[in-house]
């Protein structure tokens, strides 16, 4: 029971981060059908900028805010200088552009920061809480709570505000949205900005648990994408479910099957979903949409 709980909490914690990355993917994909492989770099930026600002003496909450702002700025520039100009390019071209951008961001990060791992102090101390023999970090609760807040907040925004309605309209039918006078370019820029902020937040919350370095983004992007696929790409609820499920699968696979092949879970899941269940768990028919 103790082991089960331990794995459950570990899985939920990473799963929450995957969910945030997957959510970022979904937002951008909905608005533009662009698969943004630089999504993981926002998580990296969130963690690294906070670490370095904090080391330079900035109080933690301000350092975190700064990190979110930096990530949003990078997200908006990514849209402005790489995605906008490549408008009309094929899907594959756009994928290569975002991969190139992610390598570029990482390359800059390793120069501006360094190549070491870094830690942040936990927000509410390092002493694990005991629950039926399992040790749960207070920081894990921060990650879970933060992720839940983001999901609920985004949902409210989409449903209650005019701009949210514009985003939803663009996602449903871009051409129609443009016809009724929605500035879809602004919608897409917005999607990049919000995705960046969500990713950065995930990075800030999880760094005290998992450490961060300039290179953490790649694997997170790939796993976040696997989560988005698992949930059915383009579906925000699916993205969150997919993320949590992937985190749990990984954790239990590591604990019960093989800890060395933990990272393989996400990619086996991608291939299985693509071959057997192309719509994902909650997806619409997506496979023929190119």
């Amino acid at each position: 029971m103790a082991e089960f709980l331990q794995l459950l909490f570990a899985g939920l914690t990473v799963g929450a981060v995957y969910a945030l990355v997957a959510l970022g993917f979904t937002l951008i994909f909905q608005a533009s059908e662009v698969v943004n492989f630089a999504q993981g770099e926002f998580v990296m930026l969130g963690g690294m900028v906070t670490v370095f600002a904090f080391k330079a003496g900035v109080p933690l909450p301000l350092a975190a805010l700064l990190a979110v702002l930096v990530a949003v700025a990078v997200g908006l520039s990514l849209h402005r200088f790489a995605i906008e100009p490549a408008k009309g390019a094929t899907v594959v071209t756009l994928i290569i552009v975002t991969i190139g951008a992610s390598i570029f961001i990482r390359g800059i990060a390793q120069i501006v920061f360094d190549k070491q791992f870094h830690a942040l102090p936990a927000f509410s101390g390092d002493e694990p809480l005991r629950l039926l023999g399992a040790a749960i970090l207070p920081q894990s609760l921060w990650v879970l709570g933060g992720a839940a807040l983001v999901v609920v907040g985004l949902r409210l925004f989409m449903e209650r505000t005019l701009f949210g309605a514009a985003v939803r309209a663009t996602a449903a039918n871009r051409l129609a949205a443009e016809l009724v006078g929605i500035d879809t370019r602004r919608v897409l820029a917005f999607a990049f900005g919000v995705s960046a902020a969500i990713g950065a937040l995930g990075g800030i919350l999880v760094t005290p648990v998992t450490l961060t370095s300039y290179a953490v983004g790649t694997l997170l992007a790939l796993k976040g994408f696997a989560a988005a696929m698992l949930g059915g790409i383009g579906n925000p609820v699916g993205a969150v479910l997919g993320g949590v499920l992937l985190g749990l699968l990984e954790s239990f696979a590591a604990g019960w099957i093989s800890s060395t092949y933990k990272d393989a879970v996400a990619f086996v899941v991608i291939l299985l979903v693509l071959f057997a269940l192309p719509q994902g768990l909650l997806g619409r028919r997506a496979i023929e949409r190119v």
């Binding site: 490549a86 552009v97 951008a101 390598i103 570029f104 390359g107």
Partner: peptide, 13 residues
């Protein structure tokens, strides 16, 4: 890495 990434983006765009 920075150069490689930038080259990819510039060429593709």
């Amino acid at each position: 890495h920075a150069v490689l990434g930038l080259a990819i983006v510039l060429f593709m765009v």
